[in-house]
Amino acid sequence: MMREEFSAADMPSGVIRCSEAQGALHAYVDGEFGLLANVTATQLSVHVLACSPCAAFLGQLKALQQRLACSCGCEAPAELRTRVITRITQMHVNGDMFAYLDEVRVEDF
């Protein structure tokens, strides 16, 4: 669906267009938002919260990224795998009696 194009001069200051928002969303899902000089996070979230095509676009990007993350054949290092499995087994054996340790760790991060 095409919308009327407005030039930058027609836009109220601080409002960004869908094309700008979608460009920024690519960087946003990559955690690279800091690289963008022309769009602030506030501008982006104001736009995306109000614009359902851009909100849908964000969801699609995230979904695509999740699928690709599992599809490119890169394996998590064995070290991490072992660490996670050991920890979960520990939680299982201990009935997760050390759950409070995680809360402490997250707070202290």
Binding site: Y28, F33, T40, A41, T42, L44, S45, V48, L49, A55, A56, L58, G59, Q60, K62, A63, L64, Q66, R67, C70, S71
Partner: peptide, 28 residues
């Protein structure tokens, strides 16, 4: 402000469009 916006945007992907649902369920 940026971090608050970040929290707001983080939630948006949870209301999937048809295309997003399809992406999530397509075979590898």
């Amino acid at each position: 402000a940026d971090q608050e916006s970040d929290a707001a945007l983080a939630l948006l992907g949870d209301f999937p469009s048809a295309e997003q649902m399809a992406l999530e369920s397509l075979p590898d």
